[in-house]
Structure formats: structure tokens, C-alpha cells
Design a protein around this nucleic acid. Structure first.
Lengths: 332, 332
DNA sequence: TTATAATGGGGTACCGGTACCATGTCAATC
DNA sequence: GATTGACATGGTACCGGTACCCCATTATAA
């Protein structure tokens, strides 16, 4: 007997002395006599044979493959979302193909094209921005695409209510008596976080239009960048409250403030968005909006499967959040 | 013209008025007249056709798919590793199929079997434990498997020198004058972290055999569990130094200590392993061993590709690390 | 001028499965 | 005794590509 080699159904059939179709029936259910079944099983076990999904897919047209296009594999939020997506899909017999784009929009398009040539059954796009390129792709591609975290106009999306979350934070800040505020956001390229969340905060603060007393800053999604931006700003002026568009930034702010000898929240308060585990673990723990990322992942996966089954789905689903008070905000 | 549907090479051929083989040549290189090429391109672009990888693979036997079996998608270390693996593989024209097991060994086996039926070209196993089941699978499966982070006896692995890293930490602790030490480790089920790292620390401390002055504790990989364990231990006795097998635990230790009113490092010092960004961001930043996870990911991917090409590879490759001093350790 | 490439393109047997049809038992029903 | 249908199995045309072989032209070399 030769060493482990690629066996095909025909090999198994020949070995067992039956026809290919009988072996196929053995694997897929159908009339096979107990005795024949036993004989096939014996051969299959002995050589360690498994039918090729690829060949099977060729006929059935379904790959049972779902692509997840993610901007990073290193963030708490994507991690939560991907874990639930994967869990849910696995339960339904699908495999998850995760493509990382490292925040590069062009790699996003590439990823979708790639998934399309792989004949993935569906795609979940954890995007930071939905461009016309996405819109076009979605129209051409016969494979269902669902956007998670950003609204996909003309498509299907599962999003968070960033405006509302921002609004609540703004209201909360006002209620706690803060008036000298520094807001640290991200590029407006990211519609959900960069635009809606920010607008929510400003509206929640109830500022008279035009006359903003809020200092606005912008930074990238990395700690390093955030720290640099925050440090130079704090050197010029220390507000009573820093609102950060993500917990990542909030943690950076906490670090910089403490390093400068400022006490949080006595000298300066901090609020973040994201509800990272880490935000609870620092001192003081950071007041932050926790989005239900796990539920979002599951809803996204479930919805995509419905789309694949060509069942009707809502084009927009909004997932909840809640403000979690830590010890990083002082009432003034 | 009908709406976006599945087009096949034969459709394109018919539309263009050439033979299937010519269209195939168009995609794969070969003699095609410029004018014919143009006509094909026109049709392909118009209907948005892309050749099916699945069908292509059936003949070529290569799926260009690499499976990565990961214990979690939420950890800094796995994130770093996966990102580099994915980057490297993408450059080489491979896709990365990430399967999450949520630390469940049985799902690991399932994942490998699944990848095998998908005819993945290779598998990277980020395991916490290599069991006989893995060994057996690897022997039966004709597809190359590489273990990352744990030594795969009888197979190929890329690992960190956990013993040496532990040893350095032990030596460092001794040099800083610490004698009353609490070590918080993980289950010995995890050979690299649970056994080697721990043994390294103990040996580095140079304790007389048998007579251990080190208090040993064990916890799971989660914050919650770590905090509980640490809290109850600190209530009984506060050592001068807590050595934590992962930064996750170190962060939990820092939190618990500060919450109890202890000052780090004045009342108690803390050392961790992992070199998380977060460990630098807390106050005080945590002294920790930084493993070169990125390099490990790249080496793992490169090695796996070599294995696929049937080139000779080292059965064991060890990736470096370095101790990064933060402010969490006081000299006594 | 003729042999020989190089170029351009058609035809078809696979790849490893599935689906569907055909054939043959054997026992229950008419 | 003939009909029927559940059971069991064989045979084969696909699925959507690639590979290889064959046949024309046209260009280049001998």
C-alpha cells in the first residue's frame, strides 16, 4: 500500500468493488445496503479519504464559504464581531474566510473581487467607508454583500447608532457640567465614527450652532498617533473633559494626562467609545459607550444567510449600545 | 441582456465567437491576437465575468488556500501573528482561511478536518497544546501542517523560547532583589506557557530545588478569572513581586493592586509576558517580555509555503524576544 | 524555394464529484 | 400470477475550467 496520497471517490469505489455513485450515496444519504456501507466505511477509514469540497461545489454551485473583509485583525471591536460571525456561520455549516485590509480601501476592493472569483456565497464587509467602487461592485457581483458598521446605501447594512450614542455622551457631558471640552475624532472618511458620532456629540452638548466652545482634533486609529496629538494639545490647554471617538484614544489620553501629572478625573475627565475590556482595567476605569458588537456580528451573519437564501431582509438594522460609567468623569 | 448571472467561460466564448480554449488562453497567457484579445475583453468587462477558482483548482489540484487555526480572534498576540501571516500569504497569491476554535481542542481537530476536505494547501496551527490527535491527523493528512507557538514533535514548528524568556525574567527579578514572589501561570495543558515559561522563571530565580519561596497560582486566559484569583491571593498576602504569565494577567494584577490601595511598584512590583501595547499605556507601564510575534507569523507563513513546495525546512525555528522595562518593577 | 519556427486558434479529454436515469431484486398488494 | 414500489446499485452526462493535441497562417532561416 502506498503512502498517504490523494484518493478519489473512484479509487474508493474500485477498492470496494462498487460504483462511484454508490460511494457518493454513502456520503450523502441514499439507498446503501448495511453490508455495502460497512465495506465502504472500512476502505474509507483505512485510507483516510474525504470527499473534495471543491469538486462537490462545482456541481452544487455553493461553496459554503463566507468572506469577511476586515480593516484590521488587531482591534477589540473587530475581534468581537468576527468571533460571533464565525461562530454563527460555523453552526450553519459555513466557513469563514477572513481577509484583512490593514485599513487600505484599495485592498478592500481587491478582497471583494477575490472572494468573487472564489465564488464565496456571501460577503460581510466591515468597512470604514463605502465608496462608489463598493456600490458598483455590489451591483455587478451576483454575490450578496452586507456592510457591518457603516451604512451601505442601496445595499444591506447592520450598523450602530453612532449619532444617538454620540448624542447621549454629549448630553451626559453637559449634565456633568462640562463646558471646556476637547473632542478627539477620526477622519471624516469614516462616516459612522468620523461624522455621525461627532455630530451626535456636538448636538448632545446642545451648542448654539456655529458658536462652538468645543476644541476639535483629529487623529488616526493608532495609539502612537493619538498620543502625539493629545500630548501637544494638552500642553497648550487642559480642558475639563476630553471626549474620544474610540477607547483606544481614551486610553492614550489617560496615559498622556497622567504622565503630565494631571489627575483623572480631578484635573481632566475622559470619555471614550467602544467599551473595551481594557478601559475597565485602567485606573480610573474609563466611562465609555459599549456597542453590542457581539450581537451585531450575529445579526450580520444571520442576515447574510437570509440574503443568500433570497429571503427578504431589512436593508438597515441598528444594533444597541449603552453608556457605562467608569471613574473617569467628574461632576463640575 | 439579462441581469447579472453566472457566466461561464463557454458563455464568454460563444458571445465572442471563439473557442473556450481561446478564452482560457486569454486569462492564462498564450497566443491570442490583439484584436481577439480586445473582443474578449469587451465581453468580459461588459458582463463582469471572472473565472471560477473552484473549477480551476479542480484541475490544478491547488486551492491557494491556507488555513489558520486560531484559539481566539481577540488576543493581541494572535492578532499580530495572523496579520503577518495574512500579509505574507497574500503577497504570494494565497488566501487565508481563519478558523477560530475559542480555545476548544475538539474544535481544533474539526477545523483541521474541515480544511482537509476543503483541500487547503497548508495549515498553520496556533495551538495551545499538541495532542496525539494532532499527531495522528498530521500523519494521515496529506496536507502540510505547521504549528506556531507550540512545539509539534514529529512535525514542523515555529516557536518562542519560552523557557529562556522565563529564565531572563527570573534572573531579572532576582537581580532586582525580589524574594517574596507570586507567580501567576496558566494550565500546564499549555506546554509553552504553562510549563516551559514557568520553569524558566523558577530556574532563573535560581531557587534551591524543592525549597520554593515562590507562591504559585493558576488562572485561565480571561481578565475576569485572573482578577478573581489575584484579588483573593492579595488579600491573604502581598508579595514584593507578581510575575504574570501573560500581560493580560499583569494588567489585571495592576488593576487589583491599585484598587486595593497598593502602589505599583512601591508596594508591589509586576512583570508580564507579551509586550502588549496596552502594557505601555497603563500607569505605571508594565515591564514585560516582548515576543517577536510579527516575525513569527511571517516565518511561519514562509516556512509553510516551503513545505508546500516540498523544499526542505527546519523542523524547529525559534523566534526572538526581549525584556522591556517599564515602571512596574522596583529595586529592593 | 523550402524547411522551420512562431503565432493564433479549434477540439476534446480530463479533474472529482453529483444528479438523474436505468436496471434488477424481493416482498407486499391486487 | 401480475403489478407495484421500496430498496440497492450501476452508468453516465454534466459542473467550469485546464491541458494537450491538432490544424492553419505567417514570418524567418537555411
Amino acid at each position: 500500500m502506498m503512502l498517504a496520497m490523494k484518493y478519489t471517490m473512484a479509487d474508493i469505489a474500485k477498492e470496494t468493488g462498487v460504483a462511484k455513485s454508490t460511494v457518493s450515496r454513502y456520503f450523502n444519504g441514499g439507498y446503501v445496503k448495511d453490508e455495502t456501507r460497512k465495506r465502504i466505511k472500512e476502505v474509507v477509514d483505512r485510507v483516510g479519504y474525504e470527499p473534495s469540497e471543491a469538486a462537490r461545489n462545482l456541481k452544487s454551485k455553493r461553496t459554503k464559504l463566507i468572506g469577511v473583509v476586515a480593516p484590521t485583525l488587531k482591534s477589540t471591536v473587530t475581534g468581537r464581531q468576527m468571533t460571533e460571525i464565525d461562530n454563527f456561520l460555523k453552526k450553519k455549516g459555513y466557513s469563514t474566510l477572513i481577509l484583512n485590509t490593514d485599513h487600505d480601501p484599495s485592498r478592500e476592493i481587491e478582497a471583494i473581487e477575490h472572494l468573487s472569483s472564489l465564488r464565496a456565497d456571501g460577503i460581510i464587509l466591515i468597512a470604514t467607508n463605502i465608496s462608489e467602487a463598493h456600490q458598483r461592485l455590489q451591483k455587478i457581483s451576483r454575490i450578496p454583500i452586507l456592510a457591518l458598521g457603516q451604512q451601505f446605501r442601496g445595499g444591506t447594512s447592520v450598523i450602530y447608532d453612532d449619532y444617538e450614542a454620540g448624542f447621549e455622551v454629549g448630553e451626559y457631558a453637559k449634565e456633568m457640567g462640562h463646558e471646556d471640552i476637547l473632542y478627539i475624532g477620526v477622519s471624516e472618511y469614516d462616516e459612522a465614527v468620523g461624522i455621525k458620532r461627532k455630530k451626535g456629540v456636538l448636538d448632545g452638548l446642545g451648542l448654539p450652532k456655529g458658536a462652538t466652545k468645543v476644541n476639535m482634533l483629529e487623529t488616526a486609529f493608532s495609539y502612537e498617533d493619538a498620543r502625539k496629538v493629545i500630548r501637544s494639545s494638552l500642553k497648550k490647554h487642559v480642558p475639563t473633559l476630553i471626549i474620544c471617538a474610540t477607547d483606544q484614544m481614551a486610553l492614550a489620553a489617560l496615559k498622556e494626562a497622567t504622565d503630565m501629572g494631571l489627575s483623572v478625573p480631578d484635573d481632566v475627565s475622559i470619555i471614550g467609545f467602544g467599551g473595551y475590556e481594557m478601559s475597565e482595567l485602567v485606573n480610573p476605569s474609563i466611562t465609555s459607550v459599549r456597542f453590542e458588537n457581539e450581537k451585531a456580528g450575529e445579526v450580520a451573519a444571520a442576515t447574510l444567510l437570509s440574503m443568500i437564501e433570497e429571503e427578504p431582509v431589512a436593508s438597515l438594522q441598528v444594533i444597541g449600545h449603552s453608556l457605562r460609567e467608569g471613574g473617569s468623569v467628574k461632576r463640575i
